[in-house]
């Protein structure tokens, strides 16, 4: 065999055996095979998502342009519900209350939770006890939580008023006066949520490499400066997530209102969701209830986007 022949043999061996078409088909079959298990897992989720989320959502939007639609037939009324919503004094008041509540609750619970988490993180001793103690309110059954609340805030027998009385201060009317009632609800929700957020931020703080904190110690930063300049900025993505979650959760303020105040005193604690609940069920004003629901959705989405823009930008890099 000459040198040239040998080269020719080599070239034959290098020839592709599949045509372009065959290769393309085999390749897409191969890719599809990989997708099947993925779809197997995602399929049920997508189904549940559309049945329980997407369809009710679209239905809600549709109902916001109708009257009735739950027990009786829906009747299209255009923007009637929306214009009634925008001119409703109680809703304006509810939105104001909810906004005040959200701001105070988030600021309070976050600053408390971050401080406590920071302290716990720097002091390992007794950490487990405090974790459980702080998480306790979330585990307490509602009926016990109610009793604890009763013993704290009862006008005559509550611990707080007993202390106030003993120290010659005026007793507090926790739920019967404004703004006390809203602040009482804020305290209750902060008490309930604090443990969760402490654990949340503690997990975040513990995920910060200890070298960073050590480096800052060497660089002369005291605990406050370390927390502000190193820990907090490192937690920024987590904080963004927390703010968004907290915004969404807190805008749903309802339970405490229903149980403790029914929106009173003098509309001092009506929340948007309480407003919606009353319209939807007690008054059967389905259209107004759904218009307000969709309106609330829009508000929260706007706030979420704003929060993302405000907190998220810097961590983008």
């Amino acid at each position: 065999m000459s040198q040239i022949d040998q080269n020719k043999v080599l070239i034959d061996w290098q020839e592709l055996s599949l045509t372009d078409e065959e290769f393309r088909r085999a390749r897409s079959r191969y890719k599809l095979r990989g997708l099947i298990p993925v779809m197997g897992f995602l399929g049920p989720f997508l189904l549940l998502w559309s049945v329980f989320l997407a369809i009710p959502m679209l239905w809600s939007i549709w109902l916001s342009f109708n009257t009735g639609g739950l027990i009786d037939e829906a009747k299209f009324v255009g923007f009637d519900n929306w214009s009634r919503m925008l001119s409703n004094d109680e809703l304006v008041r509810s939105l104001k209350n909810t906004a005040i509540y959200v701001v105070i609750a988030i600021l309070t619970v976050f600053s408390l939770a971050l401080t406590i988490a920071g302290l716990l993180n720097s002091n390992k001793r007794g950490q487990n006890f405090f974790k459980v103690a702080l998480y306790f309110p979330l585990l307490v059954p509602p009926i016990m939580a109610g009793m604890i609340f009763f013993f704290l805030t009862h006008y005559d027998m509550g611990i707080i008023n007993l202390v106030l009385q003993a120290t010659n201060h005026e007793k507090l009317n926790f739920l019967g006066d404004n703004p006390n009632a809203l602040l009482t609800i804020v305290s209750l929700e902060v008490w309930r949520g604090l443990g969760f957020w402490v654990l949340f931020f503690l997990a975040g703080l513990q995920s910060i490499p200890s070298d960073l904190i050590d480096a800052a110690k060497i660089d002369g930063a005291g605990s406050v400066r370390r927390f502000r300049k190193i820990s907090l900025p490192t937690l920024r993505p987590l904080l963004l997530f927390a703010v968004i979650i907290a915004l969404i959760f807190n805008f749903q303020l309802f339970d405490s209102v229903q149980v403790l105040t029914k929106g009173g005193p003098v509309l001092g604690t009506t929340s948007v969701v309480w407003f919606i609940y009353k319209r939807l069920f007690a008054f059967q004003d389905i259209g107004l209830a759904y218009a307000t629901s969709v309106g609330l959705l829009i508000v929260v989405v706007v706030l979420t986007v704003a929060a993302y823009g405000f907190l998220g930008k810097r961590s983008e890099n």
Binding site: A215, A216, G220, P233
Partner: peptide
């Protein structure tokens, strides 16, 4: 005493300039 860490322990949210300046600003 200055400490150089195995994984450098640079502050991830600060620029190089800010990182280097941090001990001085702290002081």
């Amino acid at each position: 005493a200055a400490f150089v860490f195995q994984n450098y322990a640079l502050y991830p949210h600060m620029t190089v300039r800010k990182n280097i300046a941090f001990p001085l600003e702290t002081a």
